[in-house]
Computed example of a mutant assay.
Amino acid sequence: MIGPSPVSNPTTSRTGLSFALGGLSAGLLASACCILPLAFALAGISGAWIARLTALAPYQPYFLTLAAVSIALGYWRYRRSEAAACLPGSLCASPVYRNSTRWILLAASLIAASAAAVDVYGQLNL
């Protein structure tokens, strides 16, 4: 047989989405100290609990690292499953699955990059 073998295992075809959701979660946690309170305030959501989100600031580098690793692995799995032939009717062949994975990875990348940029900008202007 010439070329890659078809992907038929549903757990291997879901790993790209799992990494994408992991990157999105870690990106949101990384932005919890700085960007998330501002986003809540702009959305009209307020409360005393928002001030407690700054307690996550010491953990931001760990969350950013976790987000970067998850996003990189998600992109790798996304591109790898794109190059591999999928069985018709399998999860990796679904355009909805592929588009949602791509958009989640893009959103996670933007959130993690903005959290890192705010952190770097804040250190430069001290």
Rank of each mutant, 00 (worst) to 15 (best):
58 P>Q: 02
117 A>S: 14
123 Q>L: 04
88 P>A: 10
118 V>Q: 02
17 L>H: 13
95 P>I: 04
43 A>F: 11
121 Y>I: 15
58 P>G: 02
113 A>S: 14
113 A>M: 14
74 G>M: 09
15 T>L: 09
32 A>D: 02
37 P>Q: 08
118 V>H: 03
50 I>Y: 06
87 L>V: 15
69 V>E: 00
71 I>S: 05
107 A>H: 05
67 A>F: 01
59 Y>T: 04
79 R>M: 10
2 I>W: 09
64 L>I: 00
115 A>I: 07
29 L>F: 15
14 R>K: 08
30 A>R: 08
41 A>I: 00
84 A>M: 13
57 A>Y: 04
121 Y>C: 06
38 L>K: 10
44 G>K: 06
88 P>F: 08
73 L>I: 00
100 S>P: 01
64 L>C: 03
102 R>K: 08
5 S>E: 15
15 T>V: 14
50 I>R: 11
102 R>V: 00
43 A>Y: 10
36 L>A: 07
49 W>G: 05
80 R>G: 02
116 A>L: 15
38 L>V: 09
77 R>H: 13
42 L>W: 14
11 T>E: 14
106 L>I: 05
55 A>Y: 11
60 Q>Y: 00
41 A>C: 02
46 S>N: 09
29 L>P: 05
72 A>P: 07
118 V>P: 01
47 G>L: 03
